[in-house]
């Protein structure tokens, strides 16, 4: 309190136009800082998760499946190769979820940081986009690490396999944006995480053709895959990593589906954030 600088005035030192243009980045910076506190945990999860899953399910369960399937393999390849791209997309989605839902609940409810941000020149749109960018960073990071582990396991057969990182990130971004909007809607729900985890994430994970071709599910369960970003990203990932058979039109369908979800999610997040802050 002792040495105050001479007052210059906010008219002089705050550049409202600059904030309007780059506000989202300031929010991203704030979020990134709090994420960095966790950086070791995030890195360990990002590496341990694929290694454990690929060994346990891919190799362990895979040894039974490969034995049973004989030389035909599953979709023409080993079970490990078949499973890996699905797990890549899953990890990207999970990373995006963690970094969009948690901060949204925190910002609106637990410590109300969004309201204090909104008391500065930052708007609801800035905050929504800032949170999204931050979760995008986490998603890219997770996907790249996962991809490197896949490389080490030798399941990337196609030269264009690196593109699977992009399709996984696309799914993560789409799903994260949608969940961010949903989390923004919730007024008071401590149990949100558990509910979403068990009624949305789990079913999507289990019924999106992750562990076996979607077509081997009874038809009344297949629709879960059709609306699941995970399935679309997995299909693209399988085509990219080992060249599974897929028609060009379906490639477009997957691509367009993911991007539409992303657009809807972002639009809804911005609307919902702005409205809730203005309430």
């Amino acid at each position: 309190m002792s040495s105050f600088q001479a007052r210059q005035g906010s008219l002089k030192i705050v550049d409202a136009a600059k904030v309007a243009a780059r506000g989202a980045l300031f929010v991203t910076e704030a979020r990134l800082r709090s994420m960095l506190k966790w950086v070791w945990l995030i890195i360990s999860i990002a590496i341990a998760n694929p290694v454990l899953y690929l060994i346990s399910i891919g190799l362990g369960l895979g040894s039974y499946i490969d034995q049973n399937a004989g030389s035909a393999g599953i979709d023409g390849v080993s079970y490990l190769t078949f499973l890996a791209p699905a797990l890549l997309a899953t990890a990207a989605i999970q990373g995006a979820m963690d970094e969009s839902v948690f901060p949204t609940l925190e910002g609106f409810k637990w410590n109300k940081t969004f309201f204090s941000m909104n008391a500065t020149p930052l708007s609801g749109n800035h905050i929504a986009m800032g949170v999204f960018f931050n979760s995008l960073i986490r998603t890219v990071f997770t996907a790249v690490l996962y991809w490197l582990v896949m490389l080490a396991f030798g399941v990337l057969e196609s030269p264009r396999a690196y593109l699977a990182i992009f399709t996984a990130v696309m799914a993560g971004a789409a799903f994260g944006a949608l969940m961010q909007a949903l989390a923004g809607l919730l007024e008071n729900e401590n149990m949100f995480f558990t509910i979403v985890e068990r009624f949305i994430i789990m079913p999507l994970f289990l019924f999106s053709g992750t562990f076996y071709p979607l077509s081997s599910m009874p038809i009344f369960l297949q629709w879960i895959g059709w609306i699941s970003p995970l399935w679309h990203a997995t299909e693209l990932g399988r085509w990219l990593t080992y060249g599974s058979e897929i028609s060009t039109s379906m490639l477009f369908v997957h691509f367009i589906f993911l991007n539409s979800i992303l657009a809807v999610g972002l639009f809804a997040s911005r609307r919902i954030f702005t409205r809730r802050l203005g309430k």
């Binding site: 369960l61 039974y64 499946i65 049973n68 399937a69 599953i74 789990m202 079913p203 289990l206 019924f207 562990f211 076996y212 081997s216 599910m217 009874p218 369960l221």
Partner: peptide
């Protein structure tokens, strides 16, 4: 859910 997915999805494969 696990039973539905793993059980019925994988039973023929395994």
């Amino acid at each position: 859910l696990f039973l539905l997915s793993f059980g019925y999805g994988l039973k023929d494969l395994v």
